[in-house]
């Protein structure tokens, strides 16, 4: 049994789903959660239900928003005198930025973007995609502890029957130290939807979308599914979509439950970024498009005709 600290970032006052995925999978170990900021009662009970023993909510000057220096120093200060074997966090923008810095402070090893893992006693062995998911490898961490791990959202899944923990909440004031790179402003993205990396359903468009305006039909489909809209590199390079929407080796690697690829031929670097999606639907008018080799359900047809029908059909079922 290992002594594990899970860092959870907050969205408002709510914990992200990847935290619950980690808690469920780590059941049987000693599990503490640490966060920076105020945590909603509802989130606190969720953490307890999924097995958290102690929940530490940190606060302090200069911690209103995320900075790599402020957060890492605050957590380092919190961890002083405690003996955690592992620190886990979600492989979100924040987690991917924070944990390497924190691991550097401890001169300790870190496994990034892990999609599955096992423990033998208190020794961790992870599986992680390499080359954007074109292959998988086992990863082990050596040297002094604590060891650091980030977990890709949606990869572990939520356990159906979690073992509850006591969920004792304690608040603590911490020093964020000197912060040289300060956040002056945060410009909120317009979509308000889940990021591609966290989305459960993704509707993606490729070069065959022909222009930026045509992405509207994907937005409409996405709206009925509660999905996030993505794009292939070809569509991004042609400026039909923003880079934040790009799925693939030079964009985001995603693993939603449902991925609907519209007018995407399926370049190897795109397939690498979305092949771990649980169910893949491909719509393309080229019956030989490589995307069909990865699709669970392939529709050979004109996306401009198929997508609106699909939107109507799903609306009538879900509505």
């Amino acid at each position: 049994m290992a002594n594990i600290l899970i860092f959870t970032e907050l969205s408002g006052e709510h914990v992200k789903s990847v935290t619950l995925e980690m808690l469920g999978k780590l059941s049987g170990h000693s599990l503490d959660v640490v966060t920076i900021g105020k945590i909603a009662d509802e989130s606190k009970s969720e953490l307890a239900r999924f097995g958290a023993s102690n929940i530490h909510s940190l606060k302090g000057d200069k911690l209103e928003n995320y900075t790599p220096e402020g957060y890492s120093q605050a957590i380092k200060n919190f961890m002083d005198g405690k003996s955690y074997d592992y620190v886990f966090a979600g492989a979100t923008s924040l987690g991917k930025d924070l944990l390497p810095r924190l691991s550097g402070m401890f001169d300790a090893g870190m496994a990034a973007d892990v999609v599955n893992f096992t423990f033998s006693g208190d020794e961790f062995e992870g599986t992680r995609p390499m080359f954007a998911g074109k292959c998988l490898a086992k990863v082990k961490i050596q040297g002094p502890k604590p060891h650091f791990v980030t977990i890709r959202p949606n990869a572990l899944g939520l356990t159906d029957s979690p073992t509850a923990g006591s969920g004792n909440l304690s608040e603590q004031e911490v020093d964020a130290g000197e912060i040289r790179a300060l956040v002056k402003e945060i410009i909120k993205g317009k979509s308000g939807k889940l990021d591609l990396t966290e989305a459960n359903v993704i509707v993606s468009g490729g070069r065959a979308m022909k222009n930026r305006d045509n992405f509207k039909i994907l937005d409409e489909l996405a709206d009925v599914l509660g999905a996030t809209v993505g794009a292939s590199r070809a569509a991004v390079d042609a400026e039909y979509a923003d880079h934040s929407m790009q799925v693939g080796q030079t964009g985001k690697t995603v693993s939603p439950s449902l991925y609907i690829a519209c007018g995407i031929s399926g370049a190897i670097q795109h397939l690498a970024g979305m092949r771990t999606s649980k169910t893949i639907v491909a719509i393309n008018n080229d019956p030989d498009a490589p995307i069909f080799t990865k699709a669970d359900y392939g529709i050979v047809g004109d996306l401009f005709k198929i997508v609106p029908i699909l939107t109507q059909e799903i609306k009538s079922i879900l509505g």
């Binding site: 292959c135 990863v139 082990k140 990865k294 669970d296 050979v300 005709k305």
Partner: peptide, 22 residues
Amino acid sequence: KVSYSNFELPPEKPPGKKFDAM
């Protein structure tokens, strides 16, 4: 601090279903 082993290709899915809607 970190060592890798067991490089392997991700599991291939069984072929899916394809529908003609031309």
